[in-house]
Every structure is written in structure tokens, then in C-alpha cells.
Computed example of a mutant assay.
Amino acid sequence: MGFKRLIKKGLLGGAGGMIEGHILDAIQKKKETGKSFRECLSESVKETISEDMPGTSHVYQMGKTDGRKQGTVEQAKRDEKIMQKKCEDHERERHEWEKIDKEKDELLDEMGKNL
């Protein structure tokens, strides 16, 4: 959507160009979000530079994607450790329950013999 948004801002500005387009876009965002005009104008300009302009948008998207991939790899390692710990805990508890179950069966057998 970046390039379309860039053209829209240029068309909004009419003969005044991008500056008026940014101002009109900021006014529209202000109505929608309720933020201050200055914040909306800053977001509009940042949006244009980092996401909409053909030269800079590719660099911006590459950095954004690289960060996500790295974060995903790190999260996968953390999740794997957590799952291994849960698996080990489960196995330990399973052995404890088997031991308790065996002791219960032996006790019932002993009580059955005495009756």
C-alpha cells in the first residue's frame, strides 16, 4: 500500500504537492485517532519516508523482516527449553505416580490376603 499512499498524499496536496498532502493527511488522522496535530503530522512524514518512498521502503522492510526472523528464532529456542523442562517434569511425575500406584496395589493385595 505504500506507493499508493504516496500518490494519494501527492494528489491530496494538489498543486502544493506533498507538503499540503501531509497536512491534509494529518488533519484526517487527527479526526480519526484524536491525537494532536503535531503527532499526526510526524506519523505521516515518518510513514512516507520509511514505508512509502520507493528507495527507502525496501531498506525499511528488510530491517523489519530481519528483526522478526531473529526474534522468531530466539523465541523458538526459549520455547524448546520450556517444553523440554515440562517434558522432564511430566516424566518425573509419571514415575512417581507409577510408584504410588504399585504401592497401592501391593497394599490392597496384602489387605485382601488378611481378610
Rank of each mutant, 00 (worst) to 15 (best):
R68H: 06
K86D: 08
Q84T: 11
K113C: 07
D109K: 15
S57P: 05
L115S: 12
L24F: 05
H58Q: 15
K8R: 13
S42Y: 00
K4I: 12
G2V: 04
T56Y: 00
E43I: 02
K77C: 02
G2T: 01
K31Y: 01
R68Y: 10
A26T: 00
E51Q: 09
K69I: 12
T48C: 12
H58I: 15
K113D: 01
M53A: 08
E91Y: 07
G14Y: 04
G67A: 02
T72H: 11
E106V: 03
E110Q: 14
E91V: 05
L108K: 05
D79H: 10
H22I: 03
D89V: 08
K104W: 11
M83W: 09
G71F: 01
E80C: 02
K9W: 00
V45C: 04
S57A: 05
I23D: 00
T56A: 05
E106G: 01
S44E: 00
G10L: 10
M1R: 14
L108V: 06
K35P: 03
P54H: 01
I7S: 12
E51H: 04
K85H: 06
D66M: 13
C40N: 00
D109C: 09
G2M: 01
T48A: 02
L11S: 10
G16M: 14
L6R: 03
R5N: 07
Q84V: 11
K102R: 15
G112L: 10
K29T: 01
G13L: 09
T72C: 11
H90P: 02
V59G: 02
E106A: 05
L107P: 05
G67C: 07
L6Q: 00
K46R: 13
C40D: 00
G34N: 12
W97H: 06
E91D: 09
